[in-house]
Computed example of a mutant assay.
Amino acid sequence: IELMQAVMPKTPQYAVFDSRFFTDMPEVNSIYSLPYELTEKYGLRKYGEHGISHTYISKRAATLLGKDLADLKMITLHLGSGSSVAALKDGKAYDTSMGFTPLTGLTMGTRAGDLDPALVPFLMAELNLDAKQVLELFNSKSGLLGLSGLSADMRDIDKAIAAGNKRAELALEIFINRVVKYVGSFYAELGGLDVLVFAGGIGENNRALRQKIAQKLACLGIVIDANLNQELTEGVISPADAKVTTLVVPTNEELAMVQEIKAVM
Results as ranks from 00 to 15, higher is better:
D95S: 08
K73R: 14
A112C: 15
G91H: 07
G80I: 07
L103I: 02
T104S: 15
A62G: 11
K89E: 14
G99P: 00
K67Q: 15
K89M: 13
M74H: 04
K92H: 14
L88Y: 08
Y94E: 15
I75R: 04
T96W: 12
G66L: 09
L65A: 15
A61K: 08
M74L: 15
R111P: 10
T101F: 01
T76Y: 10
H78K: 04
D68I: 08
P102D: 10
G91I: 00
G99Y: 03
G105L: 03
T63R: 13
L77S: 04
S84G: 06
G105A: 03
P102F: 01
L65Q: 05
K73E: 08
R111M: 10
A93Q: 11
D95F: 00
D71T: 14
G80S: 07
L72Q: 07
P102K: 02
L77E: 08
K92G: 09
L103T: 06
R60G: 06
A87V: 03
S83I: 00
R111N: 10
L103H: 01
G66Q: 11
P102Q: 03
L103Q: 11
L79Q: 07
S97G: 07
G80N: 03
D90C: 00
L106I: 10
D90E: 14
L65N: 05
R111Y: 05
F100I: 12
D90L: 00
R111E: 12
L69C: 04
L64V: 08
D90I: 00
D90G: 07
K67C: 06
D68C: 08
T104Y: 13
M74T: 13
M98E: 09
R60H: 06
L103K: 02
A62E: 08
L106Q: 12
A70C: 02
L79P: 05
D68V: 08
A87L: 02
T110W: 09
T96F: 10
A61R: 11
D90Q: 14
K73Q: 14
S97D: 12
L79M: 03
S83H: 06
Y94P: 10
A62H: 06
K92W: 00
G109C: 07
S97N: 10
D68M: 00
M74S: 10
M98N: 13
G105W: 02
R111H: 12
T104H: 14
L72R: 05
G109N: 04
L77P: 01
T101Q: 05
G91K: 09
L72H: 04
G66Y: 09
H78T: 00
Y94G: 04
T101W: 01
G66H: 09
H78P: 07
L72I: 06
L69H: 02
L69A: 06
R111D: 12
G105M: 06
M74N: 07
L72F: 09
S81A: 15
G109S: 08
G109V: 09
S83A: 13
A86Q: 05
M98V: 03
A112F: 01
